[in-house]
Design a protein around this nucleic acid. Structure first.
Length: 693
DNA sequence: ACGGGTTACACG
DNA sequence: TCGTGTAAC
């Protein structure tokens, strides 16, 4: 459960952007003839027409649900268009959707700190942008407020009889006498409307958004009016919204924890949670979850928007349901090979585009054992250091599997040797790569600050440290199996700005014009076509050849230095195209996201009580006293600095050079409290009370 | 014995 | 640290 540093004066402006039935939109962009038709994306249409993984809003109107199979959807909606997820290596291939998600991120990340929350969702911290707007061009001075912005839904804003709701919203957005927080929200709404328009123009995708003072409220709001609309949550309507919100609708409470709150505590709405003291909640659910619950009941959440544009891990997996369970070692090995190939390709792509290296390979499997005591034990997951190259990964994955299988079957069991089963079956296999670090790691912004723009050959090894990995360890053959065999020249490859992760998964700006050809050309996984053309010679091969290669040339270093300029050029031309497109849209009078929908239903803004939440007493995780040991590393740091991180006033960061503020802030973020509860009531297993009564 | 395939994170 | 489990899309 996320620990929050609840900000009592939380006047941040946070947006949550949620793509509308994303996979469907991706397919509709590819096949424009499907636009406006009831459409769903299915994977594997063999059995019962396949499983629906995304349903267009037109199809939802016909009663098509996500839980249906393709055949079922056809029954309730015979006109439905079913599009299959691409298949590669015998399994679903989600790359097109991942790349499309990256496109969206690269549009949104231009404004404010951006966190990629999932393949089709991001959070944005727009506090600064909103403050700037408020100071320089507040909505009250704008003659005509953006056409998209006035379509916002403002929670708690009552319709006035006979008045165009849009006019009402326009008035709200422009109120000059409003609470400062509301004014900032209004700015946020304008910014988000603009951003959504930009997403539409640059990607052809529509999205919905929530604008609020923290992440959880923004997330809640973005789902309230879909598709292609945005919802604002003024501070004053938070209580009204939460009081009647079913507990399971709250993020993180959709599962067992939410059920436990309902069944064990009789909580049915978030408002009902207010009846319980923080101590009571902690006692039952643990110290962190308890505090978190207490806070979200009041709409408080201090979680920050993490500036992370790229995933923290990659995985590839497949299930083998029922009769298709794998019964031989050979078939397991075959599928592991396929999975490893896909993973390897994606890792190479990540390395190539983002200069990141994964360090851990993990294998998960699901199995059943018909013979003995039924599947009490789950197949154990196993991990090992990750070696690049698909052959190596296949090797390692297979070894991990065998280790897991031995453990799973127990050494007592009859030997399974050479293939044929003895009562076991594998129903799911997946491998994943985690502990991904960028090169150069860690202190990028700070290194850059101290060294200026010049990328230093003399970069100290200290500064490259991140977690337990040094660049050295990562790149040089270590012990038995060498890691990535890469000869780094004396210079750093790349050191991008405040975010070390601004690089898109797909260099989409470059590829935008001929997006349709891009993947066809992309046969080799590690070298973008552009690079291949640019670097006909002087290329050093950096990895062993298992079909996956990494290449860097001396000239690449130059290009890296030029990188900024280059992308600015691209961005400029892109902006021009955008301008053109926008003008075109304006001329046609289609300056509206909703116009992209044939039959959008006119959404009604559910108006809420205009109630004030007074003097919310923010509870930070109670500090000091019972906080046990810290990690040695923290201790060291604190000793060296003679400061307790918890006691540093966060505002001092603002006095640091802007380039390094972001990074320092991450050091100052509050630590989670070890989940130690008073002896005796040690239980944070919410399901425990039910059993063993 | 599954909507499937991924991701992220808490806890021990 | 690693491994397991929950939750979400």
């Amino acid at each position: 459960m996320p620990v929050a540093k609840p900000e009592s004066s939380d006047s941040r402006i946070i947006a949550h952007i949620d793509m509308d039935c994303f996979y469907v939109q991706v397919e509709q962009r590819k096949h424009p003839n499907l636009r406006g038709l009831p459409t769903a994306v299915v994977q594997y249409n063999e059995w019962k027409g396949g499983a629906l993984i995304a349903v267009s809003y037109e199809a939802r109107k016909c009663g098509v649900k996500r839980s249906m199979r393709g055949d079922e959807a056809k029954e309730v909606c015979p006109e439905i268009q079913l599009v299959c997820v691409p298949v590669a290596r015998g399994k679903a291939d989600l790359n097109t959707y991942r790349n499309a998600g990256s496109e969206v991120v690269s549009v949104l990340a231009k404004k404010g700190r951006c966190e990629r929350a999932s393949i089709d969702e991001v959070y944005l911290d727009l506090t600064e942008a909103a403050e700037t707007m408020l100071a320089q061009a507040p909505p009250e001075n704008i003659e005509v407020v953006d056409a998209e912005a006035v379509k916002s839904h403002v929670l708690g804003l009552n319709d006035e009889n006979g008045i165009d709701p849009k006019e009402n919203v326009r008035k709200w957005l422009c109120r000059s006498h409003a609470d400062r927080r509301d004014k900032l929200l209004a700015c946020g709404a304008l910014i988000v409307a603009e951003l959504r328009m930009q997403v539409l123009m640059e990607t052809e995708f529509t999205c919905s958004a929530g604008i609020a003072h923290n992440k959880i409220l923004a997330k809640l709001a973005s789902a309230m009016n879909k598709p292609a609309q945005q919802t604002v949550v003024p501070f004053s309507s938070v209580k009204g919204m939460l009081d009647s919100l079913p507990i399971k609708k709250m993020k993180q409470l959709g599962g067992k924890l939410g059920s436990s709150l309902q069944n064990d505590l009789g909580v049915s709405t978030v408002g009902d949670l207010l009846k319980f003291s923080e101590e009571k909640l902690q006692e039952r659910y643990g110290i962190n979850t308890g505090t978190w619950l207490w806070n979200i009941a009041r709409g408080i959440s201090g979680e920050e928007v993490q500036g992370r544009l790229l995933p923290k891990s990659h995985g590839s997996g497949k299930t083998f349901p029922g009769p298709r369970a794998l019964k031989t070692i050979a078939s397991v090995q075959h599928w592991l090979n396929e999975l490893c190939e896909e993973l390897s390709e994606r890792l190479c792509s990540d390395l190539d585009k983002n200069k990141r290296i994964a360090h851990t390979l993990t294998l998960h499997a699901r199995a059943y054992k018909s013979s003995d005591s039924d599947s009490q034990k789950n197949f154990p997951s196993k991990s090992c250091p990750l070696r690049y190259g698909s052959a190596k990964m296949q090797d390692d994955a297979f070894n991990l599997f065998q280790a897991g299988l031995r453990e799973y079957l127990g050494s007592n069991n009859a030997k399974t040797q050479e293939g044929q089963n003895s009562g076991w079956g594998i129903t799911g296999l997946s491998i994943s790569a985690s502990k991904i670090v960028s090169i150069p790691a860690g202190t990028c912004s700070i290194t850059k600050y101290f060294h200026g723009q010049e990328l230093p050959g003399s970069l100290s090894k200290e500064s490259l440290k991140q977690d337990d990995f040094t660049l050295e360890a990562a790149l040089s053959p270590s012990g038995s199996g060498s890691y990535l065999e890469m000869k780094l020249t004396d210079k750093l490859i790349e050191c991008s700005g405040e975010d070390t992760e601004v690089k898109d998964e797909m260099p989409y700006i470059d590829q935008r014009e001929n997006k349709n050809d891009f993947w066809k050309d992309q046969n080799s996984c590690c070298l973008s076509t552009k690079q291949a053309q640019d670097d006909p010679n002087g290329v050093t091969s950096l990895t062993s050849g298992t079909g996956c290669c990494v290449e860097m040339s001396p000239s690449q270093q130059q290009r890296v230095t030029l990188g900024e300029e280059t992308s600015i050029t691209y961005a400029k031309s892109n902006l021009k195209r955008l301008e053109r497109k926008r003008n075109k849209l304006k001329d046609k009078g289609t300056y509206s996201i909703l116009r992209f929908f044939k039959n959008n239903d006119e959404p009604s803004c559910s108006s809420r009580k205009h109630e004030h939440v007074e003097n919310i007493d923010v509870k930070a995780p109670s500090s000091a006293a019972d906080v046990p040991e810290e990690s040695p590393l923290d201790e060291q740091r604190r000793e060296a600095w003679s400061y307790n991180i918890d006691e540093i006033d966060p505002s001092v960061v603002e006095e640091l050079p802007p380039e390094i503020q972001e990074e320092v802030r991450t050091w100052l973020r509050p630590h989670k409290r070890p989940n130690i509860v008073k002896r005796g009531s040690s239980i944070c297993h919410y399901f425990l009370p039910t059993r063993n009564a």
